[in-house]
Amino acid sequence: MKNFGFSLSKDRQIDFDKSDKRIMDFVKIEEPTFNICIACGTCTATCSAGNFTEMNLRKMITLIKRGEITGVRAELSKCMLCGKCSLACPRGVNTRNVIFKINQALEKYSL
């Protein structure tokens, strides 16, 4: 292999046909309110962790639904489980349980 001083760039495009939807499929069954999120961001606005770290529950839920799961474990570890997101959600998503279930899926599939 030669070294040209450049290489193929990583494709930023989400390839939905190939992405990993195991966490999504697990959480959808275990906590069905996961489906009714409208990505309004109220959870992230109030998130204790999100105010000081890159943790963004709204975005994480969206990415899990697209099968983009790299970094979910690290992101989720910042959550303090205070429950404010569940309190704030206007749609009735049980966000606290969604977080538990994402964690379970991470363990189940060793992700």
Binding site: F4, G5, F6, S7, L8, S9, D11
Partner: peptide, 14 residues
């Protein structure tokens, strides 16, 4: 720009 060529090549690769 040499450093950007990977991006150029990635388009053809796609």
């Amino acid at each position: 720009v040499q450093a950007n060529r990977g991006y150029s090549m990635s388009c053809s690769h796609k």
